[in-house]
Write a protein that binds this DNA or RNA. Sequence first.
DNA 1: AGGTTTCATGAAACCGGTTTCAAGCAAACG
DNA 2: CGTTTGCTTGAAACCGGTTTCATGAAACCT
Lengths: 340, 340
Amino acid sequence: MNGPSLPARSRVTISQVAEAAGVSKASVSRYIGGDRQLLADATALRIEQAIERLDYRPNQMARGLKRGRTRLIGMLLADILNPYSVAVMHGVETACRQHGYSLVVCNTDRDTEQEIHHLAALRSYNVEGLIVNTLGHHAGELQSLHSELPMVLVDRKVEALEVDLVGLDNRDAVRQALDHLQQRGYRDLLLVSEPLDGTSSRQERVEAFKAEIARRPLLKGQALQTGDAFGAALRDFLAAPGPGPKALFAANGVAALAATRQLRELGCRLFEEIGLIALDDLDWYPLVGSGITALAQPTERIGTAALECLLGRLQGDREPPRQVDFKARLIVRGSTHPRG
Amino acid sequence: MNGPSLPARSRVTISQVAEAAGVSKASVSRYIGGDRQLLADATALRIEQAIERLDYRPNQMARGLKRGRTRLIGMLLADILNPYSVAVMHGVETACRQHGYSLVVCNTDRDTEQEIHHLAALRSYNVEGLIVNTLGHHAGELQSLHSELPMVLVDRKVEALEVDLVGLDNRDAVRQALDHLQQRGYRDLLLVSEPLDGTSSRQERVEAFKAEIARRPLLKGQALQTGDAFGAALRDFLAAPGPGPKALFAANGVAALAATRQLRELGCRLFEEIGLIALDDLDWYPLVGSGITALAQPTERIGTAALECLLGRLQGDREPPRQVDFKARLIVRGSTHPRG
DNA sequence: AGGTTTCATGAAACCGGTTTCAAGCAAACG
DNA sequence: CGTTTGCTTGAAACCGGTTTCATGAAACCT
């Protein structure tokens, strides 16, 4: 027995088990491979006992080599510090476990270099499939990878990449938001999003917002991105005369954080002078002012749906790429009660 | 060339590269293994071109088999929805990348079954080392794993497991908190933590709190855990007469969320009737009331320290287990200004 | 009884790499 | 000019499994 801080005790191998049980490697392999019905009961028993006695665990890497199945799924995340990503990842992970897979998560920190690096790494580890939530600049790499293994995009489309996509029905979410704001009497709206940066979900939300505004005569609306000039632009919006009560629509959780923070810095009494609705539902929304009204995404289900989509492809589904859109769920809180 | 949704194009292997370059597998292996100086320039060039032409990427699994180095690090997390865990993981991941490793993250959702499951999985994938932030019930599994590979605990000690530990100087953090509260005039304190549940860091914080209270005649203090009876207990605390201004001390981010939420439900005007300081610094703290005073943990550094510790062991460091403690950093906000 | 199936099993090839070992060859030496 | 040395290189064994194929024994059939 090795003491602590003395690792490297070589592991028990299939050959040792075979020898201990007095059978061939092949039989042991059959035993652990689930082909137990091929073995005589007596043989199976001897193998079982040998495995037990030696505390044998098969080497998944070695198995994957010949078999081609590593039981590994890769996930590429643009930003692991974004709660949305983590929530989806949680869903994926849960689903993975249920199906006997393990998940390798790579975070790119929104960096193209790292995206390439991680894609190469995932490929080199023979992941069986890929779940991708990322910028997807340089789609070439993704494209070439997709010719080797199935792939599912989450939340963000990648141009010229014909792949399954799981995400939110952005159009519907925006409609819900505007319905709610309009009904609550808000008339002058500002959509706050992170810099678009080619991110399809952000673009879709902005476009849907503009389209909806255009078709609603009661509402006035404009779109703004967080960043350097955000504070000044927000102040202007607050100061400008408009057709009626003003409200912000944060296009995701990060934008909600930035918007709320900025409102405070401008000395705005939260949600009395201005309303707020945010896409994503973060656990702290209820704590800010009278609570932030949210459009919750079913993140867990998005995650499991992505994995199940992937598993379908792994099982040979050759249908043309699908797009799975979930609906957002409105959660009304204090931030959309005009005049506090 | 394969179209989309037609994966399974078999990858280029080392043999194909060897053939294309007109050399042996061994030479190609030397080339990609970094033993380039062993090769004649002309040979290296031919190999390089063949690799380029075929777009060859070595199979990391196969390499790991003989070599014993998978370049994989495993991380076991008790709760991936906890921002602290994610922040540490981010640090680990960054450090991994810098050192050429990839990270396999497993989340146990605080469930012992899953902990066992994931440990087995990580082992079967031949991770070279393990970073563990988990309950660590059933230390047996961990112990046996530790005889095979190096291991570092993060934040949480595991009984009877003599392993490196990276975390917070809880004693010092509690002292900082009480110094601050005391100096701000608070006299009647309530420590709010999640159920201890054998989690060493929580226990340490509670113990340190009690010890500090005992040595400070000015202060009165008690400890409470979130859960069913929390609301009622909190109300009692607020109603009971005390030696002076009251404040809560949330022992981590989750407790801070629970405490703040509960205060609101009790109709408490935040931070006017009662102060609050929280361990961990979450991005929404500034937005709640006048802002929540925090003791920030250097999560990123904790993550990188954990990995570096692990790498040290991988490089043969046989010293007795170390404990690396970082100091918390006080960030004063409105929640510790008595009387609003 | 003889012949055909079926079943259980092991030997050996294989997966995609690494590593050992020995051989080939040119330069350097005496 | 014969040897020694050093540098390149490839053949083959190996890592820990899986899988194919052949074989021997038992069961089944006329």
